Amino acid sequence: MTDTAPPADTTPDQEKWLSPGVKGIGSASFLADVGHEIPTALLPSLLTSTLGAPAAALGAIEGISDALAGAARFGGGVLADDPARRRKVAVGGYAATAVLGAATAGATAVWQVGLLRAAAWTARGLRVPARNALLADLVPAKAYGRAYGFERMMDNLGAIFGPLLALGLVAWVGVQWAIGLSVIPGLLAAGAIVYTIRKTLGPVRPTRPACPEGRRRGRTSGGRPAPEVTSRKVIGLSQGMKGARQCHHPHGVRPACDLDRQKDLAPASFRPTVASGIQ
């Protein structure tokens, strides 16, 4: 019996997919869901009991907010394509969702609740693609399923714990204070994203554009790329020098130089190029 060697493409980094960064994003999903599930669970009571709105107002507010959240995910996907921008969108989205959601506690009219709810759900939609892109940056391709499964599990746990916490807060401090206190887990979620970015991802390194294929450039004595010289550039230089001579002639415009004179103006190494380019 012979022992089978492990696959060559298996590395320790691929085995350890549950890194601190993945745990940080999972914690952010849990805390964020706890934070916005509290206002969601108490929104009917706020609208009907506190503000005296009909039940139809709740349906209209929730429908518009969900539609905006779906549309914002498309825009968030465009923003998440930029590595530096996706980090800002993720942090800002989590923080804005927490603040706007908790701000509904101070609303005194139904339209204010609708406006704040719609803005909070728009920020929530913007942050989702950025968070998913950050998670993809943290794990190898073979561990995407496990990493995203862990993040979804933490999100669902927050959706369970949030309403239970809302019931306890209502019995303790009332509806409006319970909604206002939901900002705490929301901001903790934004802090978890900041921790993940700073401790695991590091700064974004700008990419240098590749040189077009087929272009050959020399090197100077200092190691820097030498400027590319073409016949068109040399011709333009010679014509500019000719124009300068014409402008400074004491008797007005000087006649144009002939071909031999233009070739004499160029350096010796470029004279064949100038002559062939003018012909």
Rank of each mutant, 00 (worst) to 15 (best):
A98M: 04
A98G: 05
A98Q: 05
A98K: 03
A98V: 02
A98Y: 01
A98L: 04
V99M: 14
L100G: 07
L100Y: 05
L100C: 06
L100M: 12
L100H: 07
L100E: 03
L100W: 06
G101P: 02
G101Y: 05
A102N: 06
A103Y: 04
A103R: 03
T104E: 01
T104R: 03
A105C: 11
A105N: 09
A105L: 11
A105E: 06
G106R: 10
G106S: 13
G106I: 10
G106K: 05
G106H: 11
A107I: 06
A107Q: 04
A107L: 04
A107P: 03
T108N: 14
T108P: 05
A109R: 14
V110N: 01
V110W: 02
V110C: 06
W111A: 07
W111Q: 00
W111G: 00
Q112T: 06
V113T: 03
V113W: 01
V113H: 02
V113Q: 01
G114R: 07
G114T: 07
L115T: 15
L116H: 06
R117T: 05
A118I: 15
A119E: 07
A119C: 15
A119D: 09
A120I: 02
A120C: 02
A120S: 15
W121T: 02
W121L: 14
T122V: 13
T122Q: 07
T122G: 13
T122P: 11
T122N: 13
T122K: 09
A123H: 09
A123W: 10
A123E: 12
R124K: 14
R124W: 12
R124A: 11
R124G: 11
G125C: 08
L126Q: 12
L126A: 12
L126H: 07
L126G: 09
R127L: 05
V128T: 15
V128G: 01
P129V: 07
P129S: 11
P129T: 08
P129C: 06
P129G: 04
A130Q: 12
A130T: 12
R131C: 05
N132E: 12
A133G: 05
L134I: 10
L134R: 03
L135W: 11
L135E: 07
L135M: 14
A136I: 00
A136K: 04
A136P: 01
D137F: 08
D137P: 03
D137S: 13
D137A: 09
D137I: 10
L138K: 04
L138W: 10
L138F: 08
L138S: 04
V139N: 06
A141E: 13
A141T: 03
A141C: 00
A141V: 01
K142W: 09
K142S: 15
A143M: 00
A143E: 04
Y144P: 00
Y144S: 08
G145V: 04
G145T: 08
G145I: 01
